[in-house]
Amino acid sequence: MTSDSISQALAAADRLCLERGERMTPVRRHVLELVLQSNSPVKAYDLLESLKPGPGSAKPPTVYRALDFLMSLGLVHKIEALNAFVGCTHSHACGGAELYICTDCGHVQEVHGSLEPGHKPKGFKVERSVVEHFGVCGNCHQ
Rank of each mutant, 00 (worst) to 15 (best):
Val111Tyr: 14
Tyr100Lys: 15
Thr89Lys: 11
Glu110Trp: 01
Ile101Ser: 10
Val86Gln: 10
Gly135Thr: 03
Asp68Thr: 02
Arg20Pro: 07
Leu73Glu: 10
Leu99Lys: 00
Val76Cys: 14
Leu70Asp: 04
Thr25Asn: 07
His90Glu: 14
Ile79Tyr: 08
Gly135Tyr: 10
Gln37Pro: 05
Leu51Gly: 15
Val126Arg: 10
Tyr64Arg: 04
Thr2Pro: 02
His112Gln: 13
His77Gly: 02
Gln37Ile: 00
Cys137Lys: 13
His119Phe: 13
Asn83Ile: 00
Gly21Thr: 00
Leu36Pro: 00
Tyr100Leu: 14
Leu47Cys: 01
Lys122Thr: 14
Lys59Cys: 01
Leu99Ser: 00
Phe134Ala: 07
Glu127Gln: 11
Glu22Val: 01
Ser50Met: 09
Ser57Ile: 02
Leu75Lys: 03
Thr89Ile: 09
Leu99Arg: 00
Gln8Asp: 15
Thr2Asn: 10
Val63Thr: 06
Leu32Lys: 03
Cys105Tyr: 09
Ser57Met: 03
Gly138Trp: 14
Ser3Ile: 05
Val86Lys: 05
His107Lys: 15
Ile79Glu: 10
Glu98Asp: 14
Gln8Cys: 07
Ala66Gln: 07
Glu33Arg: 12
Leu48Trp: 02
Ala97Gln: 04
Lys122His: 07
Leu82Phe: 12
Gly118Val: 08
Met71Tyr: 01
Ala93Thr: 05
Ala84Phe: 08
Ser3Val: 04
Glu19Ala: 15
Ala84Cys: 07
Ser40Gly: 06
His92Asn: 10
Arg15Ile: 04
Lys120Cys: 14
Phe134Tyr: 12
Glu80Phe: 01
Val131Phe: 09
Cys88Met: 04
Pro117Cys: 08
Val136Pro: 10
Ala9Trp: 01
Glu80Trp: 01
Pro53Ala: 04
Gly87Asn: 01
Gln8Pro: 02
Leu36Ile: 00
Glu132Phe: 02
Met1Gln: 00
Ala9Met: 05
Asp4Val: 13
Val126Ser: 13
Val111Asn: 09
Arg28Pro: 13
Glu110Asn: 03
Ser5Asn: 08
Gly74Thr: 04
His119Asn: 15
Arg15Val: 07
Leu115His: 07
Asn139Ala: 14
Ile6Tyr: 09
Leu73Lys: 06
Leu51Ser: 12
Val130Lys: 13
Leu16Val: 02
Glu110Ala: 03
Gly113Ser: 04
Ile6Val: 12
Gly21Gln: 04
Thr103Ile: 11
Asn39Met: 08
Phe124Gly: 07
Gly87Tyr: 01
Ala13Cys: 08
His90Phe: 04
Ser3Met: 10
Ala13Gln: 10
Leu75Gly: 13
His92Lys: 11
Thr103Ala: 06
Val42Pro: 07
Gln142Met: 11
Glu80Arg: 03
